[in-house]
Simulated assay, not measured.
Amino acid sequence: MSGAWRLYWGADNTAQATSTDDIDAVLDRIAAAGAYIVDVTAAGDDDAGVQIGVGHPDRATVLIFDDDGGYAYQPELPAWPEPIDFDYGGQSTSYPPSRTRITPANARHTIRTYLTTGNAPTPIHLDQET
């Protein structure tokens, strides 16, 4: 999955990236502006990629959308006590605690690993009951 990626967030925002460092830089800018869900897909292929929730100081959400994907979570991390709202396509959307059992740092690591190898990193589990 390495190469060129397209990022989508908010009502109509897009960016291009050619490396995971570029993706991190775009995600940093988005997170600084608020809590957003960002789709990251290979340029020209919107059917496989990741969705990441950024902008919350302690939690994130990651959805890998391919045949073997699912929501990423850290089994040792307890559920957040309440839903977390992210802007998804210009609409405030609540994500339940079961979907935010990943730290921002591990969420970033997960998407970097997936986008370059096609697999989630070993300590991260995927809940395929989406």
Rank of each mutant, 00 (worst) to 15 (best):
Q51P: 00
G49V: 11
T41A: 12
D46C: 05
D12I: 07
T110I: 12
T130G: 03
P96R: 10
D28V: 11
G44N: 10
D46Y: 09
D45P: 05
Y71E: 02
P75G: 03
M1H: 13
L77K: 07
P104K: 10
D85C: 08
G90P: 04
Y114E: 00
T93N: 12
P97N: 10
A31N: 07
V40K: 01
P121T: 08
Y114L: 00
D45F: 10
Y73E: 02
R101H: 05
L126S: 10
G118K: 04
G55Q: 05
D127Q: 08
P123C: 12
V38A: 05
I52S: 01
P123F: 13
L7H: 05
I102T: 02
T61C: 10
S98D: 14
A17M: 06
G89T: 03
H109V: 12
L77S: 02
S94L: 13
L77C: 08
R108A: 13
I102W: 04
T122G: 07
V54K: 02
A120H: 01
I84P: 00
V62A: 04
R59G: 03
T20D: 07
Y8T: 13
Q91Y: 10
R101T: 09
W9I: 04
W5S: 11
A11Y: 13
L126M: 09
L27H: 04
T20H: 03
G89K: 04
G118R: 06
A107G: 15
V38S: 00
G69F: 00
L77N: 06
D67W: 04
R112Y: 02
T61E: 02
V54R: 04
S19I: 09
D87N: 13
D68M: 11
P78H: 09
G69A: 07
T41W: 00
V38T: 12
Y95Q: 06
D24N: 13
E129G: 09
E129R: 14
M1L: 13
G70K: 01
I23N: 04
P123I: 10
I64L: 15
E129F: 10
F65A: 02
A72T: 07
D12S: 14
D47E: 14
W5K: 11
I64W: 02
Q74D: 15
N119W: 10
W9V: 01
P57G: 11
I102S: 09
T20F: 01
R101W: 08
R59Y: 15
W9L: 06
T116W: 03
G3F: 10
V54H: 00
D68I: 07
M1Q: 11
G90E: 08
I84C: 05
D45L: 04
A17W: 02
Y36A: 00
R108G: 06
Q74P: 06
D68E: 13
E76Q: 13
D87I: 15
P97L: 11
N119D: 15
T113Y: 02
P81D: 14
S94C: 11
V40M: 06
A79S: 15
T14C: 06
G90I: 05
G70H: 01
G10P: 07
Y73N: 01
D39W: 05
V62Y: 01
R29A: 13
I30P: 01
V62N: 00
I124S: 08
H109D: 15
S98P: 03
I102E: 01
A48V: 14
V38N: 00
D66K: 11
Y88W: 09
V62M: 01
